[in-house]
Design a protein around this nucleic acid. Structure first.
Lengths: 110, 110
DNA sequence: GAGTCTTTCCTAGATGTTCTAGGGGAACCA
DNA sequence: TGGTTCCCCTAGAACATCTAGGAAAGACTC
């Protein structure tokens, strides 16, 4: 039994996915792994959250999908940021920073 | 049209309420105001979110309620932290710090 | 070449929080 | 007396995430 539940703050998943795609295209499975690694195992995305999120984001035009082959020679869908996705990433980053600062402020003021 | 939507990160409301009650008991309306002020108007809690949250937290035993008179001589329900609420506050603060750090890490690593 | 493991994708339904959009009473003020 | 502010409350909608599955196909083991 782990001491700390791995969890996600509702509302941050899009930001996290966009960030993960910033450098290179990645397939879904890879996004989840990268996210977990980069967060030192704190952030864990369930597949049942990830794929629906990717569809939402594709519909909104933030990411593009393309079928290809993974590093392990498996069929995989690679997602890449669109121009609109980069804009969204900027906005969501700004919102995160503002809200994060606000919460920290409240916690400290008390 | 405001440039920035005032919004709440889902999952942080309990933490924010507990924090706001840390020093003194407060009524619901006052909690919302204090939160907004301390966050420089970034965090705005709708009453439709606030009151249900207070009930949940009362049921869980984190806060106690008592009817009284407000500063403005109005009937008001004052909430105060229980011992269990203080413990919860500690835990949620720790979770927030861990997750916040993790997200910041991901944002920077990219 | 049979069987198992891993990778990768997918979905339906449940769960839980927050918001929208109301309603209402009572004190204060003009 | 009438309007405004304070303070409480609720039902239902909206939405994101999770649970708990299923499935296919390459890789590995023997």
């Amino acid at each position: 039994m782990p001491t700390t539940k791995a969890e996600l703050l509702q509302g941050t998943l899009d930001l996290l996915i966009l960030t993960t795609l910033q450098a290179d295209p990645l397939h879904g499975y890879g996004i989840a792994q990268k996210l977990q690694q980069r967060s030192d195992d704190v952030l864990v995305v369930e597949e049942g959250s990830l794929y629906p999120a990717l569809y939402r984001m594709e519909e909104k035009g933030w990411i593009d999908a393309e079928w290809g082959k993974s590093e392990n020679n498996r069929r995989a869908k690679f997602y890449s940021l669109t121009r609109s996705g980069r804009k969204q990433l900027k906005e969501e980053t700004a919102i995160w920073e503002r809200v994060c600062r606000a919460i920290t402020l409240v916690l400290q003021t008390a």
